[in-house]
Computed example of a mutant assay.
Amino acid sequence: MKGQPIMQKLAKKLIEVMEECAYVTKNGVNNFHKYKYATSADVLEKVNTAMVKHGVCTIAIPEIISVDEITTAKGNIERLATVKINITFIDKDSEDTITITGLGSGQDAGDKAVMKAQTAAIKYAYMLSFAIATGDDPEADGKTDQTNIVQVKNTPKKNPIGNKTVKAACVECGIVLSDKVKTYSLEKYGRCLCIECQKNIKVSA
């Protein structure tokens, strides 16, 4: 580093990495919302190839910020994890270093919440630091998307007149149920269904 400003050599290499990782092709598909996205594997493969080429290595150190249990609309218990990850770049020639930080969250019914959060944190740390363009929405967990929509449908709504809670809604289509329909549905099917959705179940059966 003699005669050069601090981190100039590493900065030059990272600019070259940015040029080679300017765009990542979207190979993943979110089947629930019907859009394509750049997977973590897509991003890591492109970044890793460019970093190795220019002699830059990385050391990643994750930190779990929180792990919370949440109850879905169907009564299932899932874990929501948030992870912070520090990634240090080291230039093999000059030994210059610089560290970036990424945050990510992941939700899972099993033991993969932390892994999902860690993967998201790494992916977006690289995407933000290297200004990688993909045009995708964060993140492509179709199962979680569907669960969250059910949660929205089942959220008690407030009546603007008197601020009273309105009657139960159908878990399939969200239509508000009368007390009679709700009672029959709970006794017959064990959940709140409107008349049309009850018919669909009968047809399917």
Rank of each mutant, 00 (worst) to 15 (best):
G3F: 01
G3H: 03
Q8S: 15
K12I: 12
E16F: 05
E16M: 11
V17C: 10
V17T: 05
M18I: 03
A22W: 00
V24F: 02
K26V: 06
K26N: 08
N27Y: 05
N27H: 08
G28S: 05
G28M: 06
F32R: 03
F32T: 09
F32A: 12
N48T: 14
T49D: 07
M51F: 01
H54T: 05
V56T: 09
I61L: 08
E63G: 05
I65A: 12
I65M: 11
T72Q: 01
T72K: 01
A73G: 15
A73P: 06
K74S: 13
G75V: 03
I77H: 01
E78Q: 11
T82A: 06
V83W: 00
K84Q: 12
N86Y: 10
I90P: 00
I90A: 10
S94W: 01
E95M: 11
D96S: 03
T97L: 02
T101V: 13
T101Y: 00
G104M: 02
A109H: 02
A109R: 08
D111R: 00
K116H: 11
A120R: 00
Y124K: 00
Y126I: 04
L128H: 12
L128T: 13
S129T: 12
A131F: 09
A133E: 07
A140E: 10
D141L: 05
G142M: 09
T147R: 06
N148L: 10
N148E: 14
I149H: 02
V150R: 08
V150K: 03
Q151W: 00
N154M: 15
K158G: 14
P160G: 04
P160D: 12
N163V: 07
T165L: 11
A169Q: 04
C170K: 01
C173M: 09
G174M: 04
G174C: 13
I175L: 08
L177C: 13
K180W: 03
V181M: 06
K182C: 14
Y184P: 02
S185W: 08
E187K: 07
K188N: 11
R191L: 08
C192K: 00
C192Y: 14
L193Y: 04
K199G: 15
K202W: 01
V203I: 14
